[in-house]
Design a protein around this nucleic acid. Structure first.
Lengths: 149, 149
DNA sequence: TCACTAAAAGACCTTTTAGTCCATTAGAGA
DNA sequence: TCTCTAATGGACTAAAAGGTCTTTTAGTGA
């Protein structure tokens, strides 16, 4: 569904938030290990998240990434749109440039409701709501079941 | 949402079916013009559709592409899965290899219903059902509103 | 059977996505 | 202020997606 970059960004941000809630500021090496992503690529992605202003970073000893608790919660949609645009949430299933209720493609009437449901989902869920779920339910994971595999 | 190749394949197949219903067998040049896709790439895609057995082709004068009316209707899902696999309809939104009700990612409970709705949609709709809609409702299109643009 | 037509095959090119590596910058703490 | 550490920046590589072009193959019908 989403691009690798979006998936990695979401997992990394949720992991950072769970650690922040535990008064920790994880660094690249730890994050990449925990969420099982390529370290260099993850570093590149988090750099972009910092530039977007979604998170902040601290260099040097005990440095790492963290959310500014003053800011309002960050929706999944803002993260995804900053990476891959909003075609997923607005576009036509048949790939038409212009497709709406007035001039629909043959799939439009069926497709639009599902697409809109996806839009609502990522608009309403936030990195923070995901992190809370993750902390409150031990069953919920950000990686594979068995890291030794 | 879908790859370009899937979008072009769906539009081409629906167009072929609408023309077949009018006792015509369109060729590449006509198809690419009508659905506004790159001709060479469209040819490549239709070759693959023939190899998959989804459509048949006829060389030479009055040649072109057509559906075998003996066969049962072709679901959108079969077309899409043959091109890009089924990750869209089975995969995890966070990109985890293992993610289900027992061991969910933080998005699973919200994401799975929307993903399943998408799966139902493409499983139930067929190239033929799309073609019928297209023929019965003049408002429905497979290209832009104004081809002169 | 010849000429024409249109699909098939396959090599090739371009752009985007995915990912690596190394040198630089800057903060923390001793 | 020195040293260690960890993020930053930017050049680079690899693979996949998207797309083109030219030659070959195979029907059609005159």
């Amino acid at each position: 569904m989403f691009k690798k970059e979006s998936e990695y960004a979401l997992r990394a941000l949720v992991y950072i938030q769970t650690q922040n809630m535990n008064t920790r500021r994880p660094g690249i090496a730890e994050i990449a290990t925990e969420i099982e992503t390529p370290p260099s690529f993850t570093a590149k992605i988090l750099q972009r998240m910092v530039k977007q202003g979604f998170i902040e970073s601290q260099k040097g000893i005990n440095g790492g990434y963290f959310f500014n608790p003053e800011k309002k919660e960050l929706s999944l949609k803002r993260v995804i749109v900053s990476i891959e645009g909003d075609n997923l949430f607005c576009g036509c299933g048949f790939g038409l440039k212009e497709c709406d209720n007035e001039n629909p493609c043959p799939l439009h009437n069926q497709y639009a409701p599902v697409r809109d449901a996806m839009n609502d989902l990522v608009s309403n869920e936030t990195i923070q709501s995901m992190a809370r779920k993750s902390i409150n339910d031990k069953k919920i994971r950000l990686n594979r079941l068995d890291l030794s595999k």
